[in-house]
């Protein structure tokens, strides 16, 4: 899509806003609708738009596939290890009181933020991975084909 000038300029403007919104949804999920799942999807949309409008190679320069594959596991591990930590601290698995035993409510807050971060990372990475997998197979196509 090299010759779609307006599309490219608008996309450049939008990507920053989309990512900012994703971060807002991620960390403000306790107070308003949102959370890790939605934030992950929105964040991956930013990368998908970038690779659709510019090119897949450009997007993979920003976010190389091997890195995304690692991120998939990192998110899930972050989630699971939070649970393991609370288990070692003498609480039930995934009982966030363990993070701050003197003040269980703030422990709950921190725990929720941590695991939502894990969810967000995994969902972003999986969606981007799936898109890369589909897009890297697509034969080069001209814009007239549709």
């Amino acid at each position: 899509m090299r010759h779609h000038l307006i599309l490219r300029v608008v996309t450049k403007l939008l990507i920053g806003v989309i990512m900012l919104f994703a971060l807002y949804v991620q960390f403000h999920g306790d107070y308003s609708p949102g959370g890790g799942f939605q934030a992950g999807v929105i964040m991956s949309v930013a990368f998908i738009i970038y690779s659709v409008v510019f090119s897949l190679a450009d997007a993979q320069k920003v976010l190389p596939p091997w890195f995304v594959h690692k991120l998939m596991a990192v998110g899930l591990l972050l989630y699971a290890l939070t649970g393991v930590y609370s288990m070692f601290a003498g609480y039930n698995y995934l009982d966030y009181d363990a993070i701050n035993p003197e003040h269980p409510v703030s422990g709950q807050h921190n725990g929720i933020i941590l695991i939502e971060l894990g969810v967000g990372i995994t969902v972003t990475a999986v969606m981007v991975t799936i898109f890369y997998a589909f897009a890297s197979r697509t034969p080069p196509m001209d814009d007239e084909a549709w």
């Binding site: 799942f37 992950g40 999986v126 969606m127 799936i130």
Partner: peptide, 10 residues
């Protein structure tokens, strides 16, 4: 349902 939607798309 929230989680089911994301799992659904996966």
């Amino acid at each position: 349902i929230l989680t089911a939607i994301v799992v659904g798309v996966a």
